[in-house]
């Protein structure tokens, strides 16, 4: 079995590991780094529960092998409330009731973050498109879309403070 020396940044921290190169990024995050906020829902890119941010882009961590993240920066849900204070996305989702079972929530919040990084004031259609790779079976999405809108306004008022 081959070995791969993986170096990447995860939530701002440099990581160096020797891994089996057949591991998906998801496996390394969950099983080795114990960052279990990233979920597996389908293992084939249909549900988006495993979404993470890779160099400012949203990816399904079940669809890429960990070595593909070599030299890159990964942000997981655990990387958001670093100082113990919830960030605008997390606050907004809580406030509006966009969280039910919570299993899709980390992926949804990361999708929202990527969207707002590129587009601070998105329309409802743009929000719907940005979360179109993330399935939720509880909410019917209306509250999630609302949550992203609220996050956008919280972010606006906090401009400069937000890490995003």
């Amino acid at each position: 079995m081959a070995q791969f020396h993986l170096e990447m940044k995860v939530n701002g921290k440099a990581i160096a590991l020797d891994i089996d190169p057949g591991l998906r990024l998801l496996d390394v995050l969950r099983d080795i780094l114990h960052l279990t906020g990233t979920k597996e829902g389908c293992g084939e890119g249909e549900c988006g529960a495993c979404s993470v941010i890779l160099d400012d882009e949203l990816v399904d961590s079940c669809l890429i092998l960990a070595p593909q993240a070599y030299g890159r920066e990964v942000i997981t849900i655990e990387g958001l409330a670093l100082n113990g204070e919830l960030d605008p996305y997390q606050q907004a989702f809580l406030e509006v009731g966009a969280v039910q079972c919570g299993y899709c929530t980390p992926g949804m919040i990361l999708a929202a973050r990527v969207l707002l990084n590129h587009k601070p004031k998105p329309s409802q259609q743009e929000i719907a498109r940005a979360i179109s790779g993330n399935l939720c079976r509880c909410t019917g999405y209306a509250k999630i879309v609302q949550g992203v809108e609220i996050a956008a306004s919280i972010k606006e008022t906090k401009e400069g403070v937000s890490r995003a």
Partner: peptide
């Protein structure tokens, strides 16, 4: 939700 903060933070 009481479990909300834990869910949004992973």
């Amino acid at each position: 939700r009481v479990d909300g903060p834990r869910k949004v933070s992973g």
